[in-house]
Computed example of a mutant assay.
Amino acid sequence: MPLNEEEAVLLAAAWRRLAGGGPEAAAVGAELLDRWNEPHRRYHTLLHLWETLRAVDVLQEEARDADCVRYAVWFHDAVYEGRPGRDEEESAELAGRLLSLIGVEPGRVREAVRLVGVTAAHRPEEGDADGAVVCDADLSVLGAPADEYLAYTAAVRAEYRHVPDRVFREGRTAVLRSLLNGPHLFHTSFGREHWEAGARANMLAELDRLASPAPLDAPPP
């Protein structure tokens, strides 16, 4: 489901509040919105950006620098070609270049770049408050109601529509099991209290679907 008109306006306004209204910031904001709106995306879209920023608002009291986390969210999937690891690396490089261009303080630029990198594995170090918030915000969809989770999984499958079904099932299963085998999915106290149980139920149900011979639902390209 795409952003509605009101959400799109609010998303643009959120960038202006964060980065300011100068011409350089406006240009960077426009580039980011264009990137997140690329036609090949199905899940990593403006809606995902919007929902991840809203999750940061929920978790911001647990962050050390919530605005730095917000910068990281704007950039964390700015480069998205379905290449795990490399996409995050190039997104981090883009963050370093464009945040410096709009005059963000160098220490905050370095931290935002680091946080983008943390989203590659979603395993922040113990005591990394901002890493915990950016990871939990990015994965908050895992704890969504079942119907929203199903829409998320269908959109992810559509982004990998070029991947054969067997290969996709194997790769997706490995990702889910890796997350579930950790001591917890979420790293903030709010995430563990409010999203953890629902996320585990959603992911276990998805594993059952992946093991079934029934076709995986995916929206058309």
Rank of each mutant, 00 (worst) to 15 (best):
R192A: 04
A146H: 12
A8V: 09
Y43T: 04
A13T: 11
R97W: 01
A27F: 12
G22C: 07
E81C: 10
V69L: 08
A218W: 03
T119K: 03
G171V: 02
E170H: 11
L10P: 00
H44Y: 01
D136F: 14
R70E: 07
M1S: 15
P183N: 10
R42D: 02
L216D: 00
L115R: 00
A199W: 05
G191F: 05
A205D: 14
A129D: 09
D87W: 05
V167R: 09
W36H: 11
A95D: 02
L98P: 00
V56D: 00
R41F: 00
G171K: 05
D136P: 12
V56A: 02
E5L: 13
G143N: 03
A26M: 09
I102A: 07
R108T: 15
W36S: 06
R42H: 13
A13K: 12
H76P: 04
W36C: 08
P2L: 12
M1G: 13
L59N: 02
D77C: 05
P221S: 12
E196F: 12
A205W: 14
Y152F: 11
A72E: 01
G131K: 02
A211R: 13
A132W: 00
R200H: 03
P164R: 06
A12L: 07
G96L: 00
R35N: 13
V104Y: 01
R166P: 00
Q60P: 04
H122M: 07
G182L: 14
R42W: 09
E62K: 12
D208W: 11
R200Q: 09
L142I: 05
S189F: 05
D130Q: 14
A78M: 07
A137R: 00
Y152L: 05
S212A: 15
R114I: 11
D208V: 15
D57T: 06
A112F: 10
A199S: 09
A63T: 09
L59G: 02
V167T: 14
G182Y: 07
A151H: 10
N181P: 02
D208M: 13
H122A: 09
L53Q: 11
H184C: 03
D130M: 06
